[in-house]
C-alpha cells in the first residue's frame, strides 16, 4: 500500500520563490525514505505540504489516502511530525508536555502517562521527565520532540533532521528506534536530512532534491546503477611491473597512495563492470610477479552519487 503520494506538486511562495517544483514521489507503508538535499533544497517545504501546513501552488498529495491541504487534522491524527520549528512548552516538564499533547490526540491522562513513560525510557529521557523543558539541552529537546510525535502511534512519521544536535550515542539510539518503528510496527518514515552518511545507515530508499527539483529516487543499488554501473577495485601490491600496470589498465590511487608512501607497496585502482572480473584481475597480478596485500571492491556511496548528480562530476570513487 502507498502511504504517501505526491503528484507533480509545486510550491511557489508569495514573492515568487519556487521552493518545490513538480515533485512526484510515492512511499510504501513501512519503508524508511531518506529525502536528501542541501539546506534550502525544499525538504522542509515538502514536509509542510505533506502535513497541510502549506497549500500546494499546483499538483496534489495524499497521506494515507487523505489530502492534507483539505483535511489536515485527519492527516495529523495519523502522522507524527518532528521539525526544527515545532517546539514544546518551556514552562512545563517533559512529562507534562507529553500528557498535554497526548490529550490533544485523544489519549486519557493515565494512558498518555504510560505511553510517555515508555517512550521517555526508550529515548533515555526518563531521568529528566520531571524537569522543566527550559533546563533541557538541544539534544534532549530533540528526543522529546520525537517522543511527542510517537505518542499516538502514528502510521507515518515525518522527521526533519531528527539527529541534529544529538551526541553519537543518542543518535544511534534514535536510529535504532526509527528502524524498529519501520520493521516491527510498519510505520512509514519520511526522513529529511542533509547528512548523507547518516541517511545511508538507516534508509531503505532515497530521494535526492536540489533547488526544489527531484534529481533521482530509488534504492541505493538503483541510484548506483543510474550514475555509474562500474565497480572500482583498489589493490595494494608490490613488485608489479609498469608493463603489467598498463596492461591491466591500473592507475595509481590518489586516496591510498599517501598511506603507502615510504613503503615499497603501491596502491592501484581500476574499474570493472562486475565483481566476477575481480578474481581474474588478482590472478593476473600474481602470475605477473606481484605481491598482493589488500584488495577491495568499492561501490559509490550515497555521497558520491549525490555529488555526481548535483555537480555532474564523475563518481569520486
Amino acid at each position: 500500500m502507498r502511504s504517501v503520494i505526491m503528484n507533480r506538486i509545486t510550491k511557489i511562495y508569495p514573492g515568487g520563490n519556487r521552493a518545490v517544483s513538480r515533485l512526484s514521489l510515492s512511499l510504501n507503508q513501512g519503508e524508511v525514505f531518506g529525502f536528501l538535499g542541501p539546506n534550502g533544497a525544499g525538504k522542509t517545504t515538502t514536509v509542510k505540504l505533506l502535513t497541510g501546513m502549506l497549500s500546494p501552488s499546483d499538483g496534489n498529495c495524499e497521506v494515507m489516502g487523505i489530502d492534507p491541504s483539505k483535511e489536515p487534522e485527519k492527516v495529523h491524527a495519523l502522522s507524527g511530525v518532528v521539525t526544527e520549528h515545532a517546539r514544546m512548552y518551556d514552562h512545563l516538564t517533559g512529562m507534562e508536555n507529553l500528557i498535554f499533547y497526548g490529550s490533544l490526540f485523544g489519549l486519557g491522562k493515565e494512558e498518555a502517562r504510560q505511553r510517555a513513560e515508555n517512550l521517555l525510557k526508550r529515548l533515555a529521557l526518563n531521568e529528566a521527565e520531571n524537569q522543566r523543558l527550559s533546563a533541557y539541552s538541544t539534544g534532549m529537546r530533540q528526543r522529546l520532540s520525537l517522543a511527542r510525535a510517537l505518542l499516538h502511534r502514528p502510521r507515518v512519521l515525518f522527521l526533519d533532521e531528527p539527529t541534529s544536535g544529538l551526541d553519537p550515542e543518542s543518535a544511534q539510539n534514535v536510529n535504532r528506534l526509527i528502524r524498529d518503528l519501520a520493521v516491527k510496527e510498519n510505520v512509514t518514515i519520511f526522513l529529511c536530512t542533509h547528512q548523507l552518511r547518516y541517511a545511508q545507515e538507516i534508509c531503505t530508499r532515497y530521494g535526492l532534491i536540489e533547488e526544489g527539483r527531484l534529481l533521482a529516487a530509488g534504492t541505493l543499488d538503483e541510484l548506483r546503477r543510474s550514475v555509474s554501473p562500474r565497480i572500482t577495485v583498489r589493490v595494494k601490491a608490490a613488485g608489479i611491473s609498469s608493463d603489467l600496470i598498463s596492461l591491466l589498465h591500473l592507475r595509481k590511487s590518489e586516496r591510498e597512495d599517501r598511506e603507502a608512501a615510504g613503503s615499497r607497496e603501491i596502491c592501484l585502482e581500476t574499474e570493472v563492470s562486475s565483481e566476477k572480473e575481480i578474481p581474474d584481475l588478482v590472478r593476473r597480478i600474481v602470475s605477473g610477479g606481484g605481491d598482493i596485500y589488500h584488495v577491495s571492491a568499492c561501490l559509490p556511496s550515497l555521497e558520491d552519487i549525490y555529488f555526481t548528480l548535483t555537480a555532474g562530476k564523475e563518481v569520486r570513487s
Binding site: 495529523h76 515545532a86 518551556d90 490526540f105
Partner: peptide, 14 residues
C-alpha cells in the same frame, strides 16, 4: 514567537 504554535497546528484539531 516561541515556536510552539507550529506544534499545536500538527495536532488533530482544526
Amino acid at each position: 514567537e516561541k515556536y510552539t504554535l507550529e506544534t499545536l497546528l500538527y495536532c488533530p484539531l482544526s
